[in-house]
Amino acid sequence: MLFQVEGLVSGYGKIDVVRSLSLHVDEGEHVGLFGPNGHGKTTLLRTVSGLIPAKAGKVRFRGEDISNLDARLIVERGLIHVPQGNQLFPQMTVQENLTLGAYVRRSDSRKASNFEKVFALFPRLQERRAQQARTLSGGERQMLSIGVGLMGMPELLLLDEPSVGLAPLIKEELARAIAEIAATGVSMIVVDQDVELLLGICDRLYLIEKGAVSLETADVSQVDQAEILEMYFGKVT
């Protein structure tokens, strides 16, 4: 097993947002997380990548307990978190943002070939190489976010709400790119509200409610979309 979360508890101050959450990702697997806002999906990712401390439970990556490790050491192990929204270095160029994506030692030496890969996936970033990140459109910023993540050479990529706030056409373009990344064999956890997008990418889905897994699907090819929507919204009577 590549990645495993066991009974994880975390949150902000005295408030627990993630309450005893457990899930796992196998090597090469793509797992989707969905569920209502404010129920701990982003907090889960922030805890896994070391931005906030875990109060209890374990996070294992390749068998090693990485909970409460320094964020940079987690990045160094190939677990890369692409955060939600406009999390970029706004007053730096696209090129500088991507360069910083390869900051850690393991990706620094492969920078040149990774630049090529990112530009092949998102040609628009190449066109806007010298432009400051804050001047990009919402879709381009999301592309850059993912590009920065890829520069770090992920073994497990955590994508937080890649499609939020995007126009349908751009969303489709992005979904195609994510599927392309998935096809290269990178393991992934994708968090999104858009179940349809998740179904196009993921092998398995978890429904997260009140800080824990409330439902887990088997292989998505076995379940149909109506069932998943039912999981989400309850039975329509």
């Binding site: 990548s49 070391g50 931005l51 964020a71 940079r72 990045v75 160094e76 890369i80 978190h81 692409v82 955060p83 999390q87 970029l88 270095f89 706004p90 007053q91 730096m92 500088e96 360069t99 910083l100 994506g101 900051y103 850690v104 920065v148 770090g152």
Partner: peptide, 17 residues
Amino acid sequence: LAIRAVAQNDDFAHLVG
């Protein structure tokens, strides 16, 4: 670059290592 990165977005600076 790292100094500027931390100045502009220290959360994201953590996430690139």
